[in-house]
Amino acid sequence: MGDGDPLESIADAVDTAIDELTGGPTDDGDIERFTAAGMTLLAEARGAEDAAATFVLLHGIGMGRKVFADLARRLHPHGRVIAIDQPGYGEAPEPPRTPTIERSADLIGAYLRKIDRGPVVLIGHSMGTQVAAEVAVRHPATVSHLVLVAPTVDRHHRTAGAQLGRLAVDLLDESPKVLLLGAREYVRAGPHLGRKVRAMLTHRPEESYPRVAAPTLVVRGGRDRVSTREWCDEVTRAIPGALGVEIPGHGHETLIRDAGPAAEEILRFLG
């Protein structure tokens, strides 16, 4: 749409209103688009450019970079924070075909080499943990530390019905903030969400976990019905030297509703 389009103006106004209602920033950070192998991601960076540490945030299925506003705010004092819209999510354009988790990881790896900030602290949430784990395995020089929050997909319940049913139950206890942010991002994910879910379910993260070399933290919300305690314990055991923590009173969207406890655990892990 061109400048001055009334529908675009309405969409921008709604977007700003949601940010205001949920406590997110109404201004953009430093925005960059990166394209490789026919896919485009959008990266939003905040914090000092000369910071020694770099945190890179990867969202889950149907989500986008803006759900990380609270976490990014808490991490800013400790380094440069880059939140990613993966291809076909948030404001990143839909690719010609839905990428596999492995192809998404290769795109992230190429972007990390391009920005040339050295190894990063890579933080994935939900489906983003699958991408993050593959980046750590396929592009190990780009990752100093790996953080997997609410890892999916539980190999014992690898069906769309099981995953969506558990998520629906989990969301019954969630705050209006999470529901409002989630609704916006799911609309943005567009008509190909079903194909994206299939790509998520096809991936086998348990085959990659034993090959992760980066120091790893696995974080679970104590009330998370999607990423159960049994599954997160299995993930932690599968990754050499990984640590596992549980945040009481939080569900699957622990990084979105109130990222404070998770941020504290991440910073404690980094020492």
Rank of each mutant, 00 (worst) to 15 (best):
D19K: 06
A110E: 12
D30L: 05
I31D: 08
A213G: 10
L171R: 13
S104L: 14
R220I: 03
M200E: 13
R158S: 07
D12M: 06
E94C: 00
L107Q: 08
A168Y: 15
G241C: 05
H252A: 07
G161Q: 11
A37T: 00
L21Y: 03
E44G: 03
D27P: 00
Y209V: 03
L107G: 03
A214S: 08
A213D: 11
D258K: 07
T129Q: 07
G64M: 07
D258P: 11
L164N: 14
D50S: 12
I239M: 08
E91R: 12
F68K: 03
E134P: 00
L181D: 10
D170N: 15
G60Y: 01
K196Y: 03
Q163C: 12
H157Q: 14
T35A: 11
R97M: 05
R117C: 03
K114E: 13
L217G: 08
V149E: 11
D70G: 12
G244L: 09
H157G: 01
M127E: 12
R198V: 04
L217D: 11
E134S: 12
A242I: 08
L267R: 09
L148N: 01
H157S: 11
T26I: 10
Q86T: 10
V147Y: 01
R65K: 15
H125C: 02
A53T: 13
G241P: 07
L181H: 08
A132R: 06
